[in-house]
């Protein structure tokens, strides 16, 4: 979506105002918002932010996948409309069902992070654990390449190869 004032830059600040039941929306780029003296509300709780992002989403039909907007979770009956009201998911399965719409919003609310890094339940299946380890190594690899730390990158690449090789051996031995 393009900023309503300069009509050039991408709008990153979306304001929804409800006065006496009338809803108005403003979409601005960072620079125009600052010029207008609009500061993002101090200490907006993250779930409120998420709700606002979602509320802003329907105005941009392209952003909202048709599939997701009609999707109902077979497990809990949750719809995106419902999520917009409550800002809470109905069951773990909703993360998969609404992945397409929610992934960019979660990424935005989580400061650009899109995948887990940290504790893994000890009972998680071994391949899940490995998968995550590889995923996290890949993230580190990207970071190393970005900062041009090629020595570290090569080291991480070796670790990934090692893990992938091991997991292949495991699969093969399981198959035999």
């Amino acid at each position: 979506m393009i900023c309503q004032i300069c009509k050039k830059l991408e709008a990153t600040i979306h304001l929804t105002e409800i006065t006496n039941g009338n809803r108005s929306e403003v979409h601005l780029c960072q620079a125009c918002a600052v010029e207008q003296g609009i500061a993002i509300k101090n200490q907006m709780p993250l779930n409120e932010l998420l709700g606002n992002l979602l509320a802003a989403a329907p105005a941009d039909e392209e952003l909202m996948s048709d599939l997701d907007s009609e999707q109902v979770c077979p497990n809990c009956g949750m719809t995106l409309e419902q999520f917009r009201k409550e800002a809470l998911f109905g069951c773990p399965n909703d993360y998969d069902v609404f992945e397409k719409t929610m992934a960019p919003l979660i990424e935005k609310a989580q400061d650009g992070h899109c995948s887990h890094c940290g504790k893994i339940p000890s009972k998680a299946p071994a391949d899940t654990k490995k998968q995550l380890e590889i995923l996290s190594l890949r993230q580190k690899l990207d970071a190393a390449v970005r900062t041009e730390d090629y020595e570290k990158a090569a080291e991480i690449r070796d670790q990934i190869n090692e893990l992938e090789k091991n997991s292949c051996t495991q699969h093969t031995s399981q198959n035999t």
Binding site: L46, F89, A109, G118
Partner: peptide, 15 residues
């Protein structure tokens, strides 16, 4: 979930 970690009711706690 492997991608999102510990799944929580509000996605602001996920991971």
């Amino acid at each position: 979930s492997p991608k999102y970690g510990y799944l929580t009711a509000c996605p602001t706690n996920v991971g």
